[in-house]
Design a protein around this nucleic acid. Sequence first.
DNA 1: TATGAATGAGTCTTCATTCAT
DNA 2: GATGAATGAAGACTCATTCAT
Lengths: 224, 224, 224, 224
Amino acid sequence: MKLTTERSPRKAKGQGPERREEILAAALRLFNEFGVYAVSTRQIAVAVGISQPTLYAYFPTKDQIGSELQNRAFGLLADALTAGAKGDVRSLEDLVAMLRIYVDFGLTNPDMYRIAFMWQAAPGGAGRPEPDQALSPAAQSTYGVLRREITDLHERGLTLGLDPETLTQSVWAAMHGLIALVIVKPGFPWVEREHLITSHLTLIARGLLARAAASAFPGTASSR
Amino acid sequence: MKLTTERSPRKAKGQGPERREEILAAALRLFNEFGVYAVSTRQIAVAVGISQPTLYAYFPTKDQIGSELQNRAFGLLADALTAGAKGDVRSLEDLVAMLRIYVDFGLTNPDMYRIAFMWQAAPGGAGRPEPDQALSPAAQSTYGVLRREITDLHERGLTLGLDPETLTQSVWAAMHGLIALVIVKPGFPWVEREHLITSHLTLIARGLLARAAASAFPGTASSR
Amino acid sequence: MKLTTERSPRKAKGQGPERREEILAAALRLFNEFGVYAVSTRQIAVAVGISQPTLYAYFPTKDQIGSELQNRAFGLLADALTAGAKGDVRSLEDLVAMLRIYVDFGLTNPDMYRIAFMWQAAPGGAGRPEPDQALSPAAQSTYGVLRREITDLHERGLTLGLDPETLTQSVWAAMHGLIALVIVKPGFPWVEREHLITSHLTLIARGLLARAAASAFPGTASSR
Amino acid sequence: MKLTTERSPRKAKGQGPERREEILAAALRLFNEFGVYAVSTRQIAVAVGISQPTLYAYFPTKDQIGSELQNRAFGLLADALTAGAKGDVRSLEDLVAMLRIYVDFGLTNPDMYRIAFMWQAAPGGAGRPEPDQALSPAAQSTYGVLRREITDLHERGLTLGLDPETLTQSVWAAMHGLIALVIVKPGFPWVEREHLITSHLTLIARGLLARAAASAFPGTASSR
DNA sequence: TATGAATGAGTCTTCATTCAT
DNA sequence: GATGAATGAAGACTCATTCAT
């Protein structure tokens, strides 16, 4: 029962690490377009131009591809935030700038953002999804940058009287919500994107501010 | 997660419309416990106590079950919000109360919230017409309740100088973010839940407020 | 990504239990011809004339097919032995007759014998094969018939001075050896089959006998 | 049984013929532990500390490894038997001693015995010429030692009146049966091993003996 | 010589769906 | 209206083997 067929020419394009990157790129694209669950290893292989088994020379499991992408996404985001927060002096404007980076990252790379924050790794085989053993180091890093910034502001008395941890989680959630909704409901009649982002950041910053600081914040004159 | 072929103990009671409800209930439960993609029509059938083909007498497609659940979820949320907003007088406290209802709904019924706001029916790949990315009527209703409330506040000069549409979307996003993150990252070291919610609502309300109103809002004394 | 193709006509030949039997028969044949490990569920399905998934409506696992066949084989063998041992009086000739039944069964149904006594059920997933938790009930029954017979003889003083348990195991082993070797080494220049069997049984019986009885046993005149 | 790609700690030492031996040794060990079918060429390669393709520099096929091991096993067994049969004088005790060697070999090296007598190289299915069902030279040698011994006894009038060929096959079968059953059914409630072996050999020897000789054989007093 | 990389074929199994009764 | 039975398609993954270097 051995069938011999014409061998197809071996692919020898990008080997080793490069091939790995190709796989990740293709997977990310497909995951985003069809959803992680709807993409098969075969589709990924075809997209890369390799055979299905070859995939397993680079990743032991389909989920591992997802996990790696997730970690990368967290890493990139953390890098972007860190880069944006390099200045010594931390003002409110700095915070808003950082939040802007966060939002831009999410809306510019919806695929990555999606896999980072809107995907739960495999159920783990057991019946019930594992409780997501905390965040990965990369994720913690991302969160850490944000918290550091906010803690700083807090220690300077620039925030309202809540502990920095809570504030950070709250701010994070507010921003995540915008990105997530826009991604998941693209058909919704959103107001103009730039306006929406700016307004949202303003809302968050105003909510975060101590009263004194609030008065100094631009764009807060009540209308009517 | 291997479900044997054995009948479920409770043989299906009702028929016709009632049976339909049973199916939806079972599906919702399973979807939530194992995830939409991990639940098979067989499992649903077994859980309901009917045969697999019978399912197709009530729903043409598995995705249709999801879609119907999605609509129902929107409906329930809209109802809850409407009920909470029935008072004539619209104050800031009223708004916060409504937001609270929204958050509570999401965190109390994560299964429904998830399927309503964090699930996209199969993109249809190729061949099937995209089911119109706009929000369903039920979803629009949900959004409508919120917008009406905020518009009201706006017209009374209680909000900062942005158009109500933008404000609504921003507020909605901020709340969605909290619920979504808590659902997707249950392993994250969140601060105490009640504290988190309260703080978040405070932050949103403060961000929304006109300056004058802000000073009147409780819990906003700056610290340090 | 949904491809529609012409449906092939549904098979409706032997349904239910009959289909089950067809599967077992086909599997037995294939298992014997190619070895259990070399036979795939697909091959079985093709041999039966059904689709691969249909197999799983009758057996949850490939190994289950093997196990069922094994149990059946034991059952048939036990039945054959029991039928042959129905006489009240138990003489040496009766024992030899029973042994003959055993050997005939094995050589007439090498496929069944093989799967019963020369196959170990699946390694069980864990690294090392499970210690074959004793014999199955059917197997125990088979062994029991033999032991009962020998114990009887023993109690009548017709066997040499060893405990019946040991004798039974020894006799069993001696017979198994003949069948197993003939099956596994069909190319070996065996002496004429009938002669081989008769001689082997004689040898076993002679070895089993008490001295007094031995002298009465036919075909034992020493040659030269 | 997932073997990672990591190199085995002991990097392959020898090359050429030595390497070949290493491969055989590793394969034998793995075959025994997990079963021939459950062991992959990759696992063998990893165990040896070489790459998978390198295997094919030493053996054209996985089955060839099995075949070679089979031949080796036969050779070792033949050697053991020959060594045990070196004495000039051939008595019944000598025969029993030789049988004991055979049984000991089988139970001490179940891996080898299994591959020698209980494994058939891939039937080749269709396309490949059947590798001649006759026994290999090594196997014939093993059988030859036994037959020579029994022929000797026969010519001295010590055996019952059957041709030596038949006797040899019968004795061989009887011993094989014990080893094979013990190996395949380790979970069976066997009587104490040493006792079982001794009894079995006694049974065989008694069956083989001419009447006169029988009376002189120890341990044959009838009971009851 | 040895290997990194790749591959066709195949494994068991599960799915959503539909036919015939 | 309901179901037992069946099915095409696809799922992830592993295997023995071979090409190009």
